[in-house]
Write a protein that binds this DNA or RNA. Structure first.
Lengths: 194, 194, 194, 194
DNA sequence: GATGAATGAGCATTCATTCAT
DNA sequence: CATGAATGAATGCTCATTCAT
């Protein structure tokens, strides 16, 4: 793997773990086995490295989420919605570094990123919203969800997702997390389908 | 107000907004109208100042939550649970700085705080759990919640709370947030009570 | 003498000798017997230190020049003009560091100083011009200088001064310099008075 | 034009404008449209590039001056001397970059150049002196200059030249400069011929 | 309590230079 | 010839911290 790629990965992990200000370029370089100035052969400066890495993580998350919409017809609404949570969980597990980074900086953006990130977040949020809407509409068509206005259900589901996002990062136990995921979803579905 | 108090407040806000590493003692001092070394008259060092401030924020949050349990008998279970969310929201609004700080460092603790914070969090979490349990039991006694095992409902409710916590910090609009809060709770209660 | 003062003097000499870019703050600090960051207790940054020092040198030169005009009546025009050169020479000798600095940066200003310096130079130049004018007028009144238009003589005298300024810095020998000064002035006066 | 030649020209301009320490090799390379290490194919290091360029500028100036001596018989002494100034002026205009460089580093040589430059300067100065001497002697033979010792007149003329050199770099206006040149020379000639 | 002076440690960044390709 | 990758050395600057006053 190229030095540039390795720098990106080290940066991803360290920026995620210790934050932008808490991560020295020298640490990133050291992890890659290179001296600090070598970074400047690939990135303009610390901010550039961070932004590159952050954008990539964000894109990776968005792509992951977007792929859900391709599968809508195969499953019932309930299973589709559960799959959304499962997929989010899968992303956290397979791309832990990206997840941490995205979550961290979406909730606590450094000043110089605030605007860019809000933009990116609204984008991603809108995408997700429309996917959820489709699944819920599907549920109404199927009859598994009674006819009612859409927004409350979408809001509730997004709330479940956000709650699970936070919990993923402070409940380290797989079992506990999966239990919480199931309980949250079951209660949600109960509320939606009755 | 004493310098010490003023330092605590400035530190609270700045540590919350810009993070531990992103906040220089000189900034805190400047906000208070004092030179940096003056801080050392009250706090051993940066870490000490941070810990003091963090602990206080955490305590403030815990106290706020704890006060809920005193009121259990006056209201029905549904209203009591809704009040929990309302109270959390109230805390965010009245003590925005404390909220940001607690949320930020519970989810992303700096290395030197990891252990302390996990302890504190488990504590707070346990407290909250038992309060929620009581309200749900009350609901079962009242008949507003069908008999069933407790944990799923508690997990679901805590998840609603966590979701709302995150959302408070990235949806800045009051109206949007309140809508999301109501929709999340209504769906939860629908799922729980049916 | 205070550290601040000592810093200024070291900066004056080093900036004059080795230029702005050729002088590291660490050198200045070292000469004063202090570590580099101590500089920041007194000056905002390198540019600030330089500007302070430069402005002071410029002021010092201007003051020196200005003092000439107070003495006009005591001497004949010829002696007064010769005294201007003598006084400039005296300034170079007594304030060698200031001289070098002023000359260096008036002729070769760094980009960030161009404007400020041009301003300061025009100021100083105007001052000097009017002093020379007075002495020449005095010469005409006395009859030592034939009536004629002023500007050619002023231009010629200022040119003598500029030439001597340059020569001071590349002819290190006192004797040679003084000879050149006398020859230049004598020829000038010959040209002016005939 | 060859890369080597282009490098020399870029170096000439940049070293003249911003000084040796203020000019990065990368800037020079960028102006030529080449990467920094390419420079090392032609020059041993920065110093070598600088010295090459400086020597060339110095030679160019010397050659220019030397060419004056070939023409001595065609004109009267006065016109010949005026031509020296005109030619110097012409050189400044046609070879502005070279002029700046020569002037800058003759007056303010960097440490590593001091010796070389003093040598070169004395050489050039001697050359110029002997040319001026010839013209003045010619004037005496012609009778346009009264018999007298040579040195004062040579010194005075060189002073005029030096003054004009300095002024060329801080009076940007062509008209002003030409006026100053004429006034300086006329006064000089007046002084010399009477 | 509070401050001015000072510092050690560290950081982002620049730059001249090297070397394999 | 020219470049990409890499580095050692240095630079300006920041920051937490100390200490005498």
């Amino acid at each position: 793997m190229t030095t540039k790629q390795k720098l990106k990965e080290a940066a991803m992990r360290l920026f995620g773990e210790k934050g932008y200000d808490g991560t020295a370029l020298s640490e990133i370089a050291k992890e890659v086995g290179v001296k600090t100035p070598a970074i400047y052969a690939f990135y303009e400066n610390k901010e550039d490295l961070f932004m590159t890495v952050f954008r990539e993580a964000m894109d990776s998350y968005n792509t992951y989420v977007q792929e859900l919409s391709g599968e809508k017809k195969k499953l019932g609404a309930k299973e589709s919605l559960r799959r959304v949570l499962a997929r989010q969980y899968e992303f956290y597990q397979r791309h832990r570094e990206e997840s941490v980074l995205v979550l961290r900086y979406v909730v606590f953006p450094p000043v110089f990123l605030k605007e860019t990130i809000e933009q990116a977040f609204l984008n991603s949020d809108g995408l997700l919203t429309s996917i959820i809407e489709q699944f819920i509409l599907q549920g109404m068509e199927e009859g598994s969800i009674p006819d009612q206005s859409l927004q409350p259900l979408v809001d509730a589901f997004l709330n479940v997702m956000d709650g699970l996002a936070m919990q993923y990062f402070y409940y380290t136990s797989k079992e506990v997390y999966e239990r919480k995921l199931n309980h949250a979803f079951d209660t949600f579905w109960n509320g939606v389908s009755s």
